[in-house]
Each structure stands twice: as C-alpha cells, then as structure tokens.
Write a protein that binds this DNA or RNA. Structure first.
Lengths: 358, 358
DNA sequence: TTGTAAGCGTTATCAT
DNA sequence: ATGATAACGCTTACAA
C-alpha cells in the first residue's frame, strides 16, 4: 500500500509544477501552454512541451482541472433497468447516438448509469462527478434518480417521461401519431382491425388487453399509442406483447390470426419489431401481406429480417430526440435557458398495407 | 457570467465546511460522517446530517473528493467507431452488461467513449477523469487510443485485440471454436460446404473471399474463424458479408444457393445473425432447413426472428468476457497483478444441422 | 471520539 | 507575455 512497496515504477507522476520548474517558467505559464487560454511565446511554449515530454507528463490531471473549473466534462445518462434491456430496444441506439452528437459541442463524455441502486449501495448517481444528467424513460422508480439529481442541483433533461415542474423534457406525439397511422388503415377500408401493443407494465404479461388491465397499466408510451388508435376505432381489440421483439410479435400475431372467422384484415403493431413478427406469423399461416392482411408498425427503425417488405409505419425521430436532449443539456451548462421539446412522427407508406380483399 | 447576473438561485452551494460550521464540528468530522471511514457518535452524526439537510447539502463534491483521493470512480470503455455500429452487434450488449457487473465491486461507472477523435479535437480519452480503460476490439486506429492511455499511465485491459507487451487481454478461442463446429458439420457427412464470413476489413466489401482479399484483410476475428474452418475443409469457399446482420446473411445465402448445381449442402456462418439470414434465404428458395441445407452459426446469442429453429452454433461467453475485463480492471486498481484471460466457446447443437439428404 | 493541518494538481485573477 | 497568489472542496494522517 505504501509507495515503496510498489515495483519502483511509481516515483510519483510528474505534475504541472514539475514541468514548469524543469522548463524554468511559472506554473501558470505552463498551465496556459496546455489549456491554450492565453497567448504564449513560441519559445516558452516549446520549452514547456519539451520539459513535459522529458518528464513523461501527459497533460493536466483531469481531476484537478475539474475541481478547479467546477466542470468534469461528463454527462450521466440514466437508463431504466439493465443495460441489456435498454439496448435491446432499437430506438435506444440511434437516440444515444444523437445524444452524443448533441453533447459534442460540449466535448462531454457520456457516463452510463442504471437507475437501480444495486443492493443497498448508494446510487452511483449521487457520487459520480457529472455536470448534468439525462433521464431516459423516466417512470416509477426513476423518480428516485430524479430526487438525487435535484438534490445535487444538477441540470437535468428527461426523455419520454414526466419530470414535473420546470424540468425540460423531450416528448413524442405518440397519441397523435398512432391516430394518424390508424386513420390510414381506416381509409383503406379496413373494418376488422386489431392492435398489438407494447407491454403494459413492468410485469410484461402477454394477452388480451382488458379495461381492467388497462387501468393498472403503467407504461405511458403503450397507453398513449393505444389511445391514439382508439381515437379512430373506439372498440379496437388489442393484445399486449411481452416485449418489443419479432418473436413476441409472432406470438401475438398467431393469437390474432389463428381463427379464420374472426381474423382481422389489418393489424396495428405498436413497434416495428412487433410488426415484423406479425408479418412472419401471417406468412407462416399462408396469408399474404398486404393482400390478405395489412400490417402497420411504429418507430421507423431499420427492421432486420422482413425481407422484401417495406413496413408502413410512423417514423419517430429517435436520433433527433437524443440530439435535442444533448443540446438542451449543453444550453443549461452554458447558463442559457433550456426548454422542453416535442417531436412528431412522420407517416411512411410501405408495402405492408393495402385495401382489404373484397 | 457574474453570480449576481443569475436569477439569485445560485447563492453559492453549501460546502462541507459550511455544514461543519453550522453543526459546530470540524470539517474532518463532517467529512467522516459522509464517508463512514471512522466511528462518529450518534449525536454529532445527527447534528451534521441535520445541518446538511438544513443547508441543502447533498454530499461531498465528487470532483474535490476524486482529486483528493486520486480516484474518480470511472472506467472508460472505448468502442470502435460509432456507438451505433458498436451496439448493433448483439454480443456487445451482454459484454457491456458483464463489464458493468465486473466493475460493480469497485462501484465504478462506465464512461462510453468512441475511439475516433472527431475532427482535430483531442480525444476525450486524454482529458476524461478516468481511473482505468477498457479497449474493445482494439484494431488499427485503436492503437492511438492505446498510446494515449499508456501515456497517462492508466491501467488498461483489452478485449478481443492485441495490445502488446504486458497488457492484460481477454481473448476468445475463435479458431479452435470455428474448427469444432466445422468438424461437427463434417461428421454429419457434408462435403459441399461453404462459409459466410464477417467483414474482412473496414471497407466491408461483400463477395467471394479470394486469397488476394484475404492477404489484405485486417479484422482478426474474421480471419481466425475462417482459419479454423479451413483447418477442417482446407479449400472451403467463402463469401464475405457486409456486416453481421440478417439482411446481409440473406444476400450471402442467396449468392451461395442460387445455383442448384453448385449449391452447398451446408453453410457455416461466422455469426448467428448471418446464419439467420442464410436460413431465410434458403427458405425463400424453397429449401428446407436442415433437410436440404444445414446451417451453423457463431456467437450463441438469442436470435430474434428465425421462428421455430434452434440454431446450431458456438456459444461464446460474451457476458463472462465483459465481467472478466471488469474484474481485471478492479484488480489493477487495487494494485494486484492482473492477467490475460482466454475464453472458450461451447458447442450447442440445434435443429439447423443434420446429415445431408442422400 | 473529535480536531488540526497539510495538501491533492489545477486554473483564474490580477499585477508586472 | 509572464508570474505570484489564492482559491477549488475535500480527505486523512496525526495529534489531542
């Protein structure tokens, strides 16, 4: 534990002061050489750099710099649950990409955090040296994260979640978008229509969506998209999937299509992955899409694995959402006022919807 | 910019010294109340906490703490290329999950960094307050990252990459594993076999793998897995995919299967996604798997979208790889010696391989 | 159990 | 263009 116990390879790392001394300048001058805040004569500049190279000095210690500056250059992104589940959702990835872009103007890094403080341990959120926080899909237990963040007085932006008073949030027009694609289906002339929804709550139970289950549902996105569809077809039957995946779409699709008598002529899926599964299920049953069954999705991601089909879907600006969040964070950090932003989806006609067969 | 210009909401945040003063104790005592390093009488403890609550003090400033301690509690993970592409690879996600687990004993957070320093800007790697670094898929340009890291004297672990002397690395038995699954196919009696490989280099050009292209290839994983397969079938024809995805698998599969005369009876895919695509291509052509065509994958991920099939594949311990990296980092940070670890894949028989039809 | 004191390595301000 | 000086907010021997 004592320095002397170490191999010898740690003779105390050189500091800026060491470099300055070796170069025969003051620490402040040396500092300026690295930060570039002020003009420095070419001569001294080179002397300092040479001394640094000589001493193996790799630049200012970020910890000291961040204490002094009051900035660490790190923004925390709090994801719900396991990283695994978070990144399984294909919209998360472009969103994260957009976020890093939006943050780029700050030169900030992204610290990934989960919102579950594992086993009595204090949430890393309360001890991480971050300048700001982005909360994603802030529901239920994310409130705890929010409390910590507010306690620390950190700037925070929430994506797809309700954070209450004065906190900038990035939202999507889920209900309106769902209504729009549903109207498209209605205009094609479909009358027997059903929906496949995302999970209703964290239990992720599959099955027929009853009023009862709806009352206990906690996932806003699901509710909003269903509400939008029911704005068009008030009695729209729906079945909830266990997750947003192709396989769950297959299961739901099979359930909806198995009975040739009650079989719908169109299915509205709440995500593209679910839609892909429904298509698969339909084709397995010998139904042609869109001749025998129209299928609509939601998200507008690149779906890997539905072959020649182009999904009719609502394209959500996932990357833009992330970028917007990043930009609002950047603004707050610059002391500028930040605002909530609302994004809208865009209808994209594909080859998976058509008028019902006569 | 001056404090007075701000709304008033920033009357200087309370510091530990403020809290101590308010509680009538010394700063060190107050410090100890928060860190829990030493026993403190219940009475003072409560007085300090009360004072903290009163002043809205949310705990020690992590920046100051990390300067003092010489630790930031953050480990950087450097991914190749865009986050987008990194997270498109389904093995990355469990690996990241394992990594966070392995790091959990440290209570460290994970800072996501890309290895491409965007446009002349200094790589965040050189200015981020991190305690250690994990390099993933360190090839070519990641050498630059490695240089920075070594310059800063940070502990580093490399996953699936060669970092040279004395740097712990986490590797996989790609060649041996590829040979194993190839032997399985050979033992089933297949003689007309072909391979679908991962990209050969960052150009990601699709097509027949010639000796020429092979000589210029830069992606180790691809080369190792191909070498393993050719240990069994020395003349194994191969076609390279543009990426590890189902759609690219379809393309490659179609290319290999289109000619009924030369059509192989078994296809070895270098990833499960590619295998799924090959299966899709086969079924599109009216071939049954495994009766008319055997398909083997690699990775052992959950493939979303191949319906009833269970892929015959080599299961790689992705999460374990990540966890191991995390643990080695933890050891280095504790001053213990770290070591390189080599992982092996496990053969998993599925329903997609069988003896060729007679 | 509590207090004293000495930094941790920078950067910012203000002279010179 | 350069330098002196004072923080930044905390932790941790060590002393009491």
């Amino acid at each position: 534990m004592t320095p002397s116990a170490l191999p010898q390879s740690t003779p105390r790392r050189a500091t800026l002061a060491d470099v300055a001394r070796a170069a025969g300048v003051s620490t402040s001058t040396a500092s300026v050489v690295f930060s570039g805040t002020t003009r420095v004569s070419e001569a001294t500049r080179e002397r300092v750099l040479a001394a640094a190279a000589e001493l193996g000095y790799a630049g200012p210690d970020p910890r000291a710099a961040s204490l002094r500056r009051g900035r660490s250059g790190i923004v925390a992104v709090v994801l719900e649950g396991q990283l695994r589940t978070a990144f399984l959702d294909p919209v998360t990835i472009p969103m994260m990409d957009g976020l890093t872009d939006g943050l780029a103007s700050l030169g900030a890094g992204v610290l990934l955090l989960r919102d579950e403080p594992g086993e009595g341990e204090v949430s890393a959120l309360s001890t991480a040296p971050v300048d700001a926080v982005v909360l994603i899909g802030c529901s239920g237990r994310a409130r705890a994260s929010l409390e910590i963040v507010r306690g620390r007085g950190l700037p925070v932006v929430v994506i797809e979640g309700d954070a209450g008073e004065g906190i900038p949030q990035i939202t999507l027009d889920n209900r309106e978008a769902a209504a729009e694609i549903t109207r498209h289906v209605k205009q094609l002339g479909h009358e027997r229509v059903a929906a496949v929804t995302l999970p209703l709550d964290s239990d992720r139970i599959r099955g027929r969506v009853t009023d009862d289950r709806l009352a206990r549902a906690t996932i806003d996105v699901t509710l909003e998209r269903l509400a939008g569809a029911r704005d068009v077809y008030p009695d729209l039957p729906a079945i909830s999937a266990g997750s947003s995946s192709i396989d769950d779409g297959v299961i739901a699709g099979r359930a909806l299509l198995s009975d040739p008598v009650t079989r719908p002529t169109a299915i509205l899926a709440q995500s593209d992955l679910l839609a892909a599964g429904v298509i698969r299920a339909a084709e397995d049953l010998g139904l042609r899409v869109p001749e025998d069954l129209s299928v609509a999705g939601f998200d507008g991601i690149r779906v890997d694995g539905i072959g020649p089909h182009m999904l009719t879907t609502m394209v959500q600006p996932a990357a833009e959402k992330g970028r917007a969040a990043g930009e609002q964070v950047a603004r707050m950090l610059r002391g500028e006022p930040a605002s909530s932003l609302h994004f809208t989806c865009r209808f994209r006609a594909g080859t998976t919807t058509a008028a019902p067969a006569v």
